[in-house]
Design a binder for these strands. Structure first.
Length: 201
DNA sequence: TGAATGATCACG
DNA sequence: GTGATCATTCAT
């Protein structure tokens, strides 16, 4: 039996070094891969949010560089992982040029069918639907802060040839940023239309 | 709707 | 040092 191969392409720096909303939309339909020893956890990205620049009041970077957010100011394609609410880890991918703080929050994954075809939708949501759920599922914590997704052997994003049409991409207000003044109404959350793993409608 | 739960940030 | 806040989730 021949193994089909060669269709999976890891995303490179060029993909991430673009305007953040474009990257956020571009990540929909790509696959987040977590390699743990010989095991792989794979989930399709179905929901993202863009956090852009110094002015975005919803962004951690709006009040300048700090110990926590410094990865956002560094190179593109790095993971920005932070702890919040005293119990949750959230995963972002850093975008745009060095020195300009911007990132895409990964909000929901659709666990790959081959691994989880026997689970009902409720259990799949428990794994991948929500930014803190997916990090818990994949075992992503502060140790991954600054991880280079272009080179890492344990975490990356790849293109598996799935094509997403513009008409499938929905834009909405971001979640949990009511404090952000006028910026709370920016439609910088993107998700795949009709997908059951999206965290909020 | 509210509790859980602790790092981070602004302030002084 | 201290107190308020928080890019969430789960149980009530």
């Amino acid at each position: 039996m021949k193994r089909r191969r060669g269709r999976q392409k890891r995303l490179r720096g060029k993909f991430y070094n673009r305007p953040t909303s474009q990257v956020a939309k571009g990540l929909l339909g790509k696959f987040l891969v977590r390699q743990i020893g010989k095991k792989k956890l794979v989930g399709k990205i179905v929901e993202t949010e863009a956090y852009v620049g110094f002015k975005d009041k919803a962004s951690h970077a709006s009040r300048g560089k700090t110990e926590r957010n410094k990865v956002m100011f560094g190179g593109t394609g790095k993971a920005y992982v932070y702890f919040t609410y005293g119990m949750h880890w959230l995963l972002n991918v850093v975008t745009e040029r060095k020195g300009f703080p911007a990132a895409v929050l990964i909000r929901a994954l659709e666990p790959k069918r081959e691994q989880f075809g026997n689970l009902d939708i409720k259990k799949l949501r428990g794994l991948g639907s929500g930014p803190a759920r997916l990090t818990k599922w994949m075992g992503i914590d502060g140790d991954f802060n600054g991880e280079d997704l272009v080179r890492s052997k344990r975490l990356w994003i790849e293109d598996r040839g799935e094509k997403i049409k513009t008409s499938q991409i929905m834009a909405a207000r971001r979640v949990g940023v009511e404090y952000a003044g006028a910026w709370k109404d920016k439609k910088w959350r993107f998700y795949l239309k009709g997908n059951a793993l999206v965290s909020k409608k």
